[in-house]
Design a protein around this nucleic acid. Structure first.
Lengths: 257, 257
DNA sequence: AACCTTTGGTTCAAATAGCGAACCGATGAT
DNA sequence: ATCATCGGTTCGCTATTTGAACCAAAGGTT
């Protein structure tokens, strides 16, 4: 494994649950020697990619990300464009809308919007890592990803996030077939109890699936009429978002009627 | 130079002016062999730190920055906190307020706010790289930075950004003395013609200067009363921001009366 | 059409950087 | 007093990186 990859893989150890990591802990989590880890972190710190907090000397993500993400957003205003579409989608459906991007074999939420149509809304968090098999977004992504990737994801032990999470690969494959036909995925309490969500994949300019947009609503509110409204709106808004981002759905993607 | 540093230094070549860079161009700008550059970029791409655009195969910053900057912001909500304070400052002064962070020997703006008190406002841009000597923020940072850093910055040829940019190190040192006494820096048309700005440094928990907050107004609007208002407001708001970020001004920083 | 320049990308013997076991002092727990 | 763990350091050995030379493709010039 290249040295650069080793260094970057350290950055990937940060999460919402672990925003700060000490040197020895880092080495353990990364499966690297402490001296190696120290050297890599020192180099990352020199460029502002990590920094040490004042007290316990733990490391956290550094200020370089503020600048580089702003540069990225200036060049490819993905989040800004997404927010516009998600706002429209929340207004149209009266529910929470969010977008997540595929990174490795996880989804990362990058933007979400709420509606003020109801007092209760499904709550989201930035940079939350979502498992593919346990979310409607993840299933939408899998349905329109290369077979090799699907095999890789489904060949690993799949964890149940709630009692309702589907973890049987054969069942998931069946679901994927249905999603390919419908053009959207549905998950009921798969990731969070009593949350019913629909998701549609987002594609890039080479028609590769890069993420998904989902609408999440409380199960109690999800009657037939709301379901049909959400399916229609999330499909049309996500198709529009794909286009706004300069992408194209693959030919296999079902066209809306 | 370490391999990781080489790779990260490639990322630092991106700017608002150059959001996309081809392989050969990268190698030239980085002063590296094309094969080396190619390998480093491939490794960065594998982790989502850069990506290639569809057409010309140029490279740009990748989606990893969206996620990692959201994680960083979740852990250290610097931008969010800054925006709150900047909003108050814009309202109090009726002018544009912005915050920038020191990264290497440049300042990077990370947040800005406008007021709707006037039709004309000084316009800002995210991720804009600012020279230290040519901006009020830069001078504020220099005034409260270690002497070695000041020497390093002032020993390099200083470029004039406008006809009014001060580039004589002796003159700048004189200005720095004044700023240390006042607790704020002033720049008139140093970075942008007809813009008069005041800046106050921001400190971290070990009282190191990490950036600055500035208020920028058109020269034509800057009478004595506005100047005094801005000096008072930017000082008190920035002191509050330093505290909100868990920082402390150094003992040498003049206390407000 | 022929030629030149530049592009993105590749190869592999030689050169260089990275690795990690063993070590250090400091700190907290027992 | 002793032990465990922390962040951090060293240097002989090991592995990775390097870059000159090469490739096909594409665009520009004559």
């Amino acid at each position: 494994m290249g040295t650069t990859s080793k260094a970057l893989s350290l950055l990937e150890l940060f999460s919402r649950a672990t925003p700060e990591i000490g040197l020895s802990d880092f080495a353990r989590r990364a499966g690297m020697n402490k001296a190696t880890t120290y050297r890599l972190l020192t180099e990352l710190a020199a460029h502002g990619f990590v920094e040490q907090t004042g007290s316990g000397r733990e490391y956290r993500l550094g200020p370089a990300f503020l600048r580089l993400s702003a540069l990225r957003e200036a060049a490819v205003p993905m989040r800004e464009v997404a927010l516009g579409v998600l706002n429209d989608l929340s207004k149209a459906t009266g529910e929470t809308a969010h977008m997540s991007l595929l990174q490795g074999d996880l989804l990362t939420s990058i933007a979400y919007t709420y509606s003020d149509a109801h007092g209760t809304q499904v709550r989201m968090e930035d940079a939350e890592a979502l498992m593919l098999h346990a979310t409607s977004s993840g299933l939408a992504v899998l349905a329109f990803s290369p077979a090799a990737f699907v095999d890789q994801v489904l060949s690993q032990p799949l964890k149940a996030r709630t009692p309702d999470t589907v973890t049987d690969p054969a069942q998931i494959r069946q679901q994927l077939k249905q999603i390919r036909q419908n053009g959207f995925a549905v998950s009921i309490s798969g990731f969070e109890q009593d949350v019913h969500s629909h998701a549609v994949p987002v594609f890039d300019s080479s028609s590769a699936c890069i993420g998904a947009v989902a609408v999440a609503a409380p199960v109690a509110r999800m009657d037939d009429a709301l379901q049909m409204l959400i399916q229609t709106e999330v499909t049309s808004h996500t198709t529009r978002l794909t286009r706004l981002l300069g992408g194209f759905p693959p030919p296999s993607f079902p066209t809306t009627t």
